Simulated scan of single mutants.
Amino acid sequence: MLERFFPSEYTDSIRQINYRKLYDEGYRGILFDIDNTLVPYDMEHPNQEIIDLFEDIKKIGFKIALVSNNNKIRVTTFNEKLKVFAVHKALKPMTRNLKRAMQAIKTNKKNTVLVGDQIFTDIYGGNRIKIKTILVVPIAEKEEWITKIKRNTEKKIIKAYLKRVKKNESKH
């Protein structure tokens, strides 16, 4: 039952993701959450490191979309320098806007990856449409109050996930 909340992969940050390997495995699109995945939720614009990372990912051959549950002003302002397809008020874990983003960047379930920091929105949403999901450790501790409430439960799910991964690794 908990498996529906398990990510395909779990890593410390977006910088730890091997984008070249993903591309070599056939992935062509990446849906990124913004807040606490790319930047702290109170950072208005992407820093140069994020801008450079997006350029590097595009050079590999990926199409990128931002998919955020945040409001239009937040997402539009953040996307000014990135200039990628972006969805605000995505209502994750509902799947409609994840599908819309994939359609916009011309990818499908088999070749799209979703990267986010929250299990109950990002990972569960991606898992519901059966795309690869990568959970990253949240960038900052400062978060919206509703997110803070969910983090304790998320910690238990991550613990169960890591236990499963360790168990599977010991079988091989």
Rank of each mutant, 00 (worst) to 15 (best):
M1N: 13
L2F: 11
E3N: 09
E3L: 13
R4D: 15
R4A: 14
F6S: 11
F6Y: 11
F6D: 14
P7D: 00
P7W: 00
Y10D: 14
T11W: 00
I14T: 13
R15I: 12
R15D: 15
Q16N: 12
Q16H: 10
N18H: 01
Y19D: 09
R20T: 12
L22M: 10
L22A: 14
L22R: 03
E25L: 14
G26P: 01
G26E: 03
G26F: 04
G26A: 06
R28Q: 10
R28H: 12
R28M: 11
R28D: 05
R28A: 15
I30F: 05
L31A: 01
F32I: 07
F32H: 05
F32S: 11
I34S: 12
I34Y: 06
D35C: 11
D35T: 10
N36P: 06
L38G: 08
V39F: 04
P40G: 11
P40C: 12
P40R: 05
P40N: 09
E44G: 04
E44V: 14
E44H: 04
E44F: 08
H45G: 09
E49R: 03
I50K: 05
D52V: 09
L53V: 03
F54H: 08
E55R: 06
K58G: 12
K58D: 09
K58N: 08
I60F: 02
G61Q: 05
F62M: 13
F62W: 09
K63R: 08
K63W: 06
I64L: 13
I64R: 00
A65P: 02
N69H: 09
R74P: 02
T77Q: 07
N79F: 02
N79K: 06
E80G: 05
K81M: 15
K83F: 01
F85Y: 12
A86T: 08
V87D: 08
V87Y: 01
L91C: 10
K92A: 11
P93G: 03
P93K: 05
R96D: 15
N97K: 09
L98N: 10
M102G: 01
T107Y: 00
N108W: 03
K110F: 09
T112V: 11
T112G: 00
V113Y: 03
L114T: 00
L114E: 01
L114M: 14
V115M: 07
V115L: 05
G116I: 02
D117A: 09
Q118M: 12
Q118A: 13
I119T: 02
F120R: 02
Y124M: 15
G126M: 07
N127R: 04
I129W: 02
I131G: 07
I131C: 06
T133C: 06
P138H: 03
A140R: 01
E141V: 07
E141K: 04
K142E: 15
E144S: 11
E144H: 07
W145A: 15
I146V: 11
T147Y: 08
K148E: 07
N152D: 08
N152E: 09
T153N: 06
E154Y: 03
E154A: 09
K155E: 15
K155I: 14
K156S: 13
I157E: 06
I157S: 06
I158D: 01
K159N: 09
K159G: 10
A160R: 06
Y161G: 13
L162H: 06
L162M: 10
L162S: 07
R164T: 13
K167A: 12
K167E: 15
N168H: 03
K171T: 15
K171Q: 10
